[in-house]
């Protein structure tokens, strides 16, 4: 058995007095798509941010491809080249075109020359169906298009792992589909993804595992069929039924 691609081992994180993650442990293999669900404030974003060290943990270890990345001597910039992130509110570089957003990392982090970077940039924009918007600025794009550029920007770094923090929750309902479709394509290509999302359609069809996080702890972790049809913990069932009600109200 080879190492898991990502392993969280008893991770703790607190902000001052507030304990946000209390002993989170799980593993993902290369090619897995794990979907994290849980109530607001349960620590989902914090957990993702610990994986690319936008947030520093207080206890435990995180391993990427067998290497402990929470050591003091880990080069965080090197780590972040290998772990892409897609944000809830896109965070596209507002002064750059779609192509500029995708190529900035290639040029300034990977050190590619402009022509090579652009060539690759166009490929990634094509991958998310936005070749025709290469020269548009973020303000000229719809929310769905912005998020697809956000995905292309993360993909361009050729990461081992892609983190998604509620990629569709800032979108108008009619724009969610185009983003989910791109994420499905990536999942089908075998890209390893750790996705915080309550898009149940995506979770059911694309997830290898569902992780239910509540109050900084993993309450339940298992394949979607099991977790959705036959939740083991009472809290999981409650959360899922609340989620369903919320969806029906929309």
């Amino acid at each position: 058995m080879s190492d898991p691609l990502l392993e969280l081992d008893d991770v703790y994180k607190s902000y001052g007095e507030e304990q946000v993650l209390s002993g989170v442990s799980f593993e993902m293999d290369a090619g897995d798509v794990d979907v994290v669900i849980g109530p607001s404030g349960s620590g989902k974003s914090t957990m993702l941010r610990c994986v690319n060290r936008l947030t520093e943990i207080n206890g435990g270890d995180i391993y990427l491809d067998g290497d402990c990345i929470t050591d003091a001597d880990t080069d965080v910039n090197e780590l972040r080249k290998q772990v892409g992130m897609v944000f809830q509110d896109f965070n596209l570089f507002a002064h750059l075109t779609a192509l500029g957003n995708v190529t900035l990392g290639l040029r300034k982090v990977r050190g590619m020359d402009k022509a090579t970077a652009q060539e690759q940039g166009y490929e990634h924009l094509e991958q998310v169906g936005l070749l025709d918007q290469a020269d548009s600025y973020p303000a000229e794009l719809s929310g769905g298009q912005k998020q697809r550029v956000g995905i292309a920007r993360a993909l361009a770094m050729d990461p081992k792992l892609l983190l998604f923090d509620e990629p569709t929750s800032a979108l108008d309902p009619e724009l969610v589909g185009e983003v989910v479709e791109v994420m499905r394509d990536l999942a089908a290509e075998g890209i390893t993804m750790l996705v915080v999302s309550h898009e149940m359609g995506f979770a059911r069809s694309a997830a290898s595992d569902i992780i239910f996080l509540d109050d900084g702890q993993i309450v339940e972790h298992g394949p979607p069929e099991q977790l959705f049809q036959n939740p083991q913990a009472a809290r999981t069932g409650e959360f899922l039924s609340r989620l369903e009600t919320a969806h029906e109200e929309e």
Binding site: R80, K81, F87, D89, F93, V109, R153, M157
Partner: peptide, 18 residues
């Protein structure tokens, strides 16, 4: 400049200065 801009820059591996 919104904070998320620098966060996104750091997330693709740029140093703080870059």
């Amino acid at each position: 400049v919104p904070e998320g801009q620098l966060t996104a820059a750091r997330a693709i591996g740029l140093s703080k200065v870059d």
